[in-house]
């Protein structure tokens, strides 16, 4: 099978101006992937499916990855010569610069060819950010197998797939607000008091129940005297 670089070169001939780059996998598995721009993703996916030498007719796996924004601290050493003793060792001052790497959400597709029995060809789509531009084009019209998996990524990561025929929550209930698979997800603090030997839980319930009710008051024993 062609390497990701060869596929990229062929795609660039087919789609001039498309954003395609190879993401190298530093691990031992060395499954490298292609990073596609949103503008041409749908057309490229159709090309990958229909191209006679690739024929990636099965989209096996669709998954999301959350990359929250990261503060990167870069340390640079600035050495200034000592004014009193120019020939001596210079004084070294460490300077730290902070840089904020913007966060984004990523959707990864694993493609295989059943016709030619090769694969995987992996490609990724990235959203603009994690809040108001969390959209990528849907590939369900190209491979039906994306239908439920993209709904799952929408549900758990909050990526909106533009062009999906039926984009609803799939595992969580419809009224649920947050996206549990995001790295910064905080589980809701909706505890009900119940007798427990766990100190951490008792500590948490204090906010809700300053004076813990007695077990009998929470669940009256059936048949007990009033």
């Amino acid at each position: 099978m062609e390497s990701p670089e060869q596929i990229r070169d062929r795609l660039l001939v087919q789609f001039p101006g498309a954003e395609i780059s190879v993401v190298t996998n530093p691990g031992i598995a060395a499954q490298h992937s292609l990073l596609l721009g949103a503008a041409h993703a749908r057309a490229i996916a159709e090309f990958l499916r229909d191209d006679p030498t690739l024929r990636l007719d099965q989209c096996s796996n669709v998954t999301g990855i959350d990359w929250p924004e990261k503060e990167i601290v870069e340390t640079t050493n600035i050495s200034t010569p000592d004014p009193a003793n120019p020939a001596g060792p210079p004084t070294v001052v460490e300077q730290k610069t902070k840089r904020l790497q913007p966060g984004f959400l990523e959707v990864v597709y694993h493609l295989y060819s059943i016709t030619h029995r090769h694969g995987p060809v992996i490609f990724r789509l990235r959203t603009g950010n994690r809040t108001d531009q969390a959209t990528v084009p849907s590939l369900t019209p190209v491979w039906c197998s994306c239908e439920f998996q993209e709904r799952e990524v929408f549900d758990l990561f909050g990526v909106t797939f533009v062009g999906h025929p039926d984009l609803r929550r799939i595992l969580m209930w419809d009224e649920f607000k947050d996206h549990p698979m995001r790295r910064d997800y905080v589980e809701p603090d909706d505890y009900e008091w119940e007798p427990t030997p766990h100190g951490a839980v008792l500590e948490k319930t204090k906010a809700h129940y300053p004076t813990p009710p007695t077990p009998a008051a929470v669940a009256p024993v059936k048949g007990a005297a009033p």
């Binding site: 598995a29 096996s60 796996n61 694993h110 995987p120």
Partner: peptide
């Protein structure tokens, strides 16, 4: 602690292709 990187492994389970995608 595996090296940083990613891998997708799959086998033929009784119900179909069961795969795991891991990102380290």
């Amino acid at each position: 602690r595996p090296k940083a990187g990613e891998a997708y492994g799959r086998i033929e389970g009784p119900k179909g292709e069961i795969g795991f995608y891991l990102l380290s």
